[in-house]
Nucleic acid binder design. Structure first.
Length: 714
DNA sequence: CATAGCCAACTTTTT
DNA sequence: GTTGGCTATG
């Protein structure tokens, strides 16, 4: 038995024991949100609610798995488990169950972003839209516009007018593509991520008996990170729970950071209106951060216009002030982070220290330094595991045995073979489909005799079909087949890719059914080995991926204009607000130590210069009394020391002159053309200070040449 | 029709 | 640093 009154503060207790009707919990950062949810689960179970009747939904995988894990720990395992996961994962489960009602008697497959891109490219080629037009937008650009339009539920035209005006001339073509892409998905029974949500809504709206079923199964609904839900997700929550239903949503409007994908803070602000009679409970006591850290984060909070007033207070009064560190360059910053980490690691285990950043690539210089120093680290965010090309290859090969056959998997799998391109792949796929319906395999046989690799692949597939091996057994065979292709394609970084495949083997071994495994890989529902925090590794993470987590020490790097806020956000005030919330999320991850790193120069690859950058406006807005300044170290890496024009010190508090936002145009003509006596005309790819240039000469290739041998064109 | 080689663009953030 | 797309070639 759990003593709730002892374990929880009054607000938490209220949230836990209010089990009937709609409840909105405004949970400030570090206010014990997850604890509250988990205790509520336990409470419900104690009250006699079967765990599987409780549905727990979140937006991100990480939040979902963390919560399901913690509830599993608190609940007695034999009580069974709570249903739940991400909105997308849940939708998939329900849709799979009722696929025929959706008009997919054969079932359907889910595409990840890369699959969707492949399909879209096919459609684009078919329509012959934008061919030969170099400035025609890329497939992924178009798809991201389409997805944005759907997530925000506005027309493609509005999206283009509001955030991609440079594509306006292509609007008619884009509309055609939108339509054709839609039809192609339908035809192939393929759903993209957005479809999962909209199809579930349609299923529930059109089929009262399905809605009835869902409602009866999930008598209690909880939604975490509600501020990050978009419109359709909010409607789904309402559909499943019904207006008078037992629904609790938890969120913090100050931590809404997914506006770019249609998350709507309006959902949390309007909750009391949508669910009349909703109880609103605020959790304001902060258990996470020391008072100095909290004071700084409260200062950030007061700088933004938030809707639900919060007054966060801590019981932890001691602690050191956050530090503001201003290394001279991003290289120097990597060094400074390293020495801080070394210092901190005497007090905290490595996995309790995190370096956070706005975008995954900001961590590159640091990763180099960590490797040099042999400090183990684990990176979250950025490129996903299953997006790496070798993983996609292997998964496609595995997907080829699925019934009905999936065109995308076949195209990718066959594309690996020598002598097979798009056309042949299409033909063979068609031949295989015909074979399945007419049992006439002559066409396939003909090609098998012509192409040894194809014969090998077909043999592999046939074996699996006739005598299905376990997912990991099948994977082993596929890997054996794939190995030569991998070696040819990725000779350069074979070890890294092989270790990725080993990881895949480990994930696979947890599955008994191939189909479940493949579906989970698309939705990344599995809890791969790489996702679990390693004990001995420093954590590197994008802020988005750090959401909901906490560490004793948090180091926040690259707090400079154009990086944080990102360049794009600086054009738009709504985006700027979101960037500020992002900073808030980042800083509130810290328990004891918070280090803010503001490099003064950043190496620009295209110019070869360390370019002067300005402290993030959000840092400038923080009152200097909330942190202590630490000057950057003198020890600077050689490249940082060279070529740094304009050497005045700039510390937060100073105003950046408008002109400084423009890049300081150097005398170095990178990107331009030049002439060489022997090699002729070439393009300057990169300037290598002090006076060397990497130049690409047609027919000759890349050469590195001293400036005095080159004549630069205007 | 497949492929290699070259060139240019693109790097928020997640499902 | 990577990837997609175009072009020339076989």
């Amino acid at each position: 038995m759990i003593d709730y009154e002892k374990s929880l503060n009054p607000a938490q207790l209220e949230a836990v024991t209010t089990t009937r009707g709609p409840v909105l919990v405004i949970a400030g950062a570090g206010s014990g949100k997850t604890r509250t949810i988990v205790y509520r689960l336990a409470y419900l179970v104690e009250q006699g609610v079967p765990p599987e009747n409780i549905l727990l939904l979140t937006f991100t995988r990480k939040a979902a798995s963390q919560m399901l894990r913690r509830s599993g720990e608190l609940l007695n395992q034999e009580m069974g488990t709570v249903s739940g996961g991400t909105f997308h994962g849940y939708s998939y489960t329900i849709l799979k169950k009722f696929a025929p009602a959706l008009g997919f008697p054969q079932g359907f497959s889910v595409m990840d972003a890369a699959d969707a891109e492949d399909l879209f490219k096919g459609v684009r080629n078919e329509l012959k839209v934008g061919q030969g037009d170099k400035s025609f937008p890329r497939s992924r650009t178009i798809l991201s516009c389409l997805s944005k339009a759907r997530n925000k539920e506005i027309s493609l035209q509005s999206i283009i007018e509001s955030e991609a005006i440079h594509l306006h001339d292509y609007l008619e073509d884009l509309k055609k593509l939108e339509e054709a892409y839609f039809l192609e998905k339908q035809k192939q029974a393929l759903l993209d991520f957005d479809d999962l949500l909209f199809f579930l809504e349609r299923l529930l709206m059109d089929n009262p008996e399905v809605l009835e079923y869902v409602r009866s199964v999930h008598g209690y609904v909880m939604v975490d990170e509600y501020q990050d839900t978009n419109l359709v997700q909010a409607r789904l929550a309402r559909l499943i729970a019904s207006e008078q239903g037992n629904i609790m949503v938890v969120g913090d409007d100050a931590q809404s950071i997914y506006g770019f994908r249609g998350a709507d803070v309006g959902n949390i602000l309007d909750f009391p209106r949508t669910f009349p009679g909703a109880r609103v409970i605020k959790l304001e006591q902060n258990y996470r951060s020391s008072q100095p850290v909290l004071s700084l984060t409260n200062c950030i909070l007061s700088n933004m216009g938030q809707k639900y007033d919060k007054n966060l207070f801590s019981t932890r009064t001691s602690g050191a002030k956050p530090e503001l560190i201003t290394p001279s360059s991003d290289m120097a910053q990597a060094g400074a982070v390293l020495s801080r980490v070394e210092e901190l690691s005497s007090r905290y285990p490595l996995h309790d220290i995190a370096v956070l950043f706005r975008a995954a690539y900001h961590a590159y210089p640091l990763e180099v330094e960590l490797n040099k120093a042999s400090i183990g680290y684990q990176k979250f965010g950025g490129m996903k595991f299953s997006e790496a090309s070798h993983i996609k290859d292997v998964l496609s090969l595995m997907r080829m045995v699925q019934d009905p056959p999936e065109i995308l998997a076949w195209k990718r799998g066959l594309g690996l073979l020598k002598g097979v391109g798009p056309k042949t792949a299409q033909r063979l796929y068609q031949a295989y489909c015909d074979f399945l319906t007419t049992a006439d395999g002559s066409e396939l046989k003909k090609f098998e005799t012509k192409n040894e690799q194809f014969a090998g692949l077909m043999e592999l597939l046939r074996r699996q079909k006739n005598l299905p091996a376990s997912p990991s057994g099948f994977l082993t065979e596929v890997l054996e087949f794939y190995r030569p292709f991998l070696e040819e394609k990725h000779m350069d970084d074979l070890p890294r890719r092989l270790s990725g495949l080993e990881q895949l083997e480990q994930i696979t071994s947890a599955y008994n059914h191939l189909e479940a495994f493949l579906a989970d890989m698309v939705l990344e529902n599995s809890d791969p080995v790489g996702m679990q925090a390693r004990e001995d590794a420093l954590v590197l993470s994008t802020i988005h991926s750090a959401k909901g987590l906490e560490w004793s020490a948090v180091l926040l790097i690259d707090l400079v204009e154009e990086r944080f806020p990102s360049r794009r956000a600086m054009q738009d005030s709504d985006d700027m607000d979101e960037e500020q919330r992002l900073l808030y999320v980042a800083c509130t991850r810290a328990r004891d130590y918070l280090g803010l790193f503001v490099p003064q120069r950043i190496y620009q690859r295209n110019t070869g210069f360390n370019q002067r950058v300005w402290p993030s406006p959000f840092v400038r807005e923080i009152d200097t009394s909330f942190y202590s300044k630490v000057k950057g170290q003198a020890g600077i890496s050689p490249r940082a020391a060279e070529n740094t024009p304009g050497d005045q010190e700039t510390l937060p508090g100073e105003v950046s002159p408008q002109s400084s936002r423009r890049s300081q145009t150097s005398a170095v003509p990178a990107g331009g053309y030049c002439r060489h006596k022997v090699f002729g005309r070439g393009k300057v790819v990169q300037a290598l200070p002090p006076n060397k240039y990497k130049v690409n000469f047609p027919g000759v290739g890349l050469k590195t040449i001293s400036g005095e041998y080159l004549n630069f064109e205007e």
